[in-house]
Simulated scan of single mutants.
Amino acid sequence: MSKSSTSDDSLSGPCVEAILWQLAQVFWVGGLWVFHVGLVPALKVSSLAPLLIEDISIQIDRWLIGVAALGLLTQLAVLVRLKGLPACWRLFSGKLLLVGFTACIGYYTLRYGFSAGARWQVFCFVVLGLSGIALVAQPVPTRAR
Rank of each mutant, 00 (worst) to 15 (best):
D8N: 13
D8H: 09
D8P: 03
D8E: 08
D9F: 11
D9P: 11
S10Q: 11
L11G: 03
L11P: 00
L11M: 08
L11S: 07
S12E: 01
G13P: 01
P14S: 02
C15W: 01
C15N: 06
V16C: 07
V16E: 01
V16W: 10
A18Y: 02
A18L: 01
I19K: 13
I19G: 01
I19T: 09
L20D: 00
L20T: 12
L20W: 06
L20V: 15
W21C: 03
W21Q: 02
W21P: 01
W21K: 05
W21D: 00
Q22R: 09
Q22P: 00
Q22V: 05
Q22G: 08
L23S: 04
A24H: 05
Q25D: 00
Q25Y: 04
Q25C: 06
V26I: 10
V26H: 12
V26S: 06
F27C: 10
F27W: 03
F27Y: 02
F27A: 08
W28Y: 09
W28E: 01
W28T: 02
V29P: 04
V29H: 04
V29W: 02
V29G: 04
V29Y: 06
G30N: 06
G30Y: 04
G30S: 07
G31E: 02
G31Q: 05
L32T: 07
L32G: 15
L32Y: 09
W33F: 12
W33K: 03
F35W: 15
F35N: 08
H36K: 03
H36P: 00
H36C: 02
H36S: 10
H36Y: 13
H36W: 11
V37Y: 12
G38F: 09
G38C: 13
G38P: 07
L39V: 15
L39K: 09
L39E: 04
L39Q: 04
L39D: 00
V40Q: 03
V40L: 08
P41G: 10
P41V: 07
P41Q: 11
P41K: 09
A42D: 05
A42Y: 12
A42V: 09
A42S: 15
A42E: 07
L43G: 01
L43Q: 04
L43C: 06
L43V: 07
L43P: 02
K44H: 12
V45D: 05
V45W: 01
V45C: 07
V45Q: 13
V45R: 14
S46P: 05
S46G: 13
S46I: 00
S47M: 09
S47E: 07
S47N: 13
S47Q: 14
S47R: 15
L48P: 00
L48E: 00
A49N: 12
A49M: 10
A49Q: 12
P50S: 12
P50C: 06
L51R: 14
L51E: 11
L52D: 07
I53E: 04
I53G: 02
E54H: 13
D55A: 15
D55V: 10
